[in-house]
């Protein structure tokens, strides 16, 4: 569905240093290649300035790469722009395509005409959107009166009026409260289940965790990782964390921590009454648990994977070799 090969994009910026102006070339994208299959839900993450926006601009056809090939839906976006955009939907977290002073439904009516959606199809689609995005309460309201969460729901509706097969989203959950975020993600999940291809850029790594099968990590213009989430965890090989809760009135664990269990480098948090230990990938987790339970009065425990934040941060800062290209 989406095929990107050896994409390059450079920007020239002018920096002012004192009285002089220097030209600097920023290599926004260096040799990016990846493919996205039809119906995939891809997460695209990276620090600010890594090249995410540039990639989206190229994929949506509003920017031309310096070199490389892009094919989406069997078209080259920036070459066949007008034909191409009829088949995509785009959502930006920080700008809206809704007309500010007018009710949401007015923008929807406009989009119906722009994308030449037949009346019956439009009515059906609108009904579906109203249901899945709970638009009934906001569709008649002027956009400027909507809260951020409501606006984002309306925005998603707008992007889907013409029922595109591919949806590009650039930071759609930014600034949203928990409930609104939830609703957005649920909607995207539904779309995915109906077979849409979704390309999501986000900073909120929880979004990725819940939804994406595959992730693409970009850093300073190069792809650092493409694959499953689990693979990302494996790649960073950060340890899992075991959290064990001690019984209320158990004796101080410090003796055991510094004694028989010293090899595990346990950490004790008296305030929460819990013990933390880091489990390397290679260690025998069951054995560790057994030993802990033998020496400490444990009532509950939990093993958690390193969070995405930790993994990604680790990758960024350690400039790990890419698994791509």
């Amino acid at each position: 569905m989406i095929s990107v090969e050896r994409l390059q994009k450079n920007y020239t910026v002018f920096q002012r240093r004192g009285l002089t102006r220097k030209r600097k070339i920023i290599r926004a994208l260096q040799d990016i290649s990846f493919t996205v299959k039809r119906g995939e839900f891809l997460g695209y993450i990276g620090p600010n300035g890594a090249g995410k926006s540039t990639t989206i601009k190229i994929l949506t056809g509003i920017m031309t790469p310096d070199s490389g090939q892009v094919r989406v839906n069997n078209m080259t976006p920036y070459r066949e722009r007008r034909k191409y955009v009829r088949g995509i939907g785009v959502v930006f977290g920080q700008k809206t395509q809704l007309w500010w002073d007018l009710p949401v439904k007015d923008t929807y009516a406009l989009l119906k005409e722009i994308y030449a959606v037949p009346k019956d199809t439009f009515n059906r689609q609108l009904k579906t959107l109203r249901e899945y995005l709970t638009l009934d309460e906001i569709i008649e309201q002027p956009v400027r009166q909507l809260s951020l969460g409501q606006r984002m729901r309306a925005e998603l509706g707008a992007a889907m009026i013409h029922d595109p097969d591919i949806l590009f989203l650039d930071e759609p959950t930014i600034g949203l409260d928990v409930i609104s975020k939830q609703k957005v993600l649920e909607f995207l999940k539904v779309l995915h289940e109906t077979g849409k291809t979704i390309f999501l850029t986000t900073h909120d790594l929880k979004d990725i965790e819940t939804l994406c099968e595959e992730v693409l990590v970009i850093n300073s213009g190069t792809l650092v990782y493409k694959g499953k989430l689990q693979g990302l965890r494996d790649m960073a090989r950060l340890p899992k964390t075991l959290r064990a809760k001690l019984a209320e009135n158990s004796p101080s664990p410090d003796i055991a921590i510094n004694g028989s269990l010293a090899k595990y480098n346990l950490r004790h948090d008296p305030a929460s009454g819990s013990i933390h230990v880091e489990l390397e990938g290679s260690s025998n987790h069951a054995l560790v648990v057994k030993e802990l339970m033998q020496n400490l009065d444990i009532v509950d425990f939990r093993i958690t994977d390193p969070s995405i934040e930790e993994i990604v941060r680790y990758i960024y800062t350690n400039k790990m070799p890419s698994n791509c290209g």
Binding site: T60, V85, F92, K95, Q97, I114, Y115
Partner: peptide, 14 residues
């Protein structure tokens, strides 16, 4: 100023 020009570039018309 508002950044919404992007959408005008994403429309199937000039």
């Amino acid at each position: 100023r508002e950044g919404t020009i992007t959408f005008d570039l994403l429309r199937p018309y000039n």
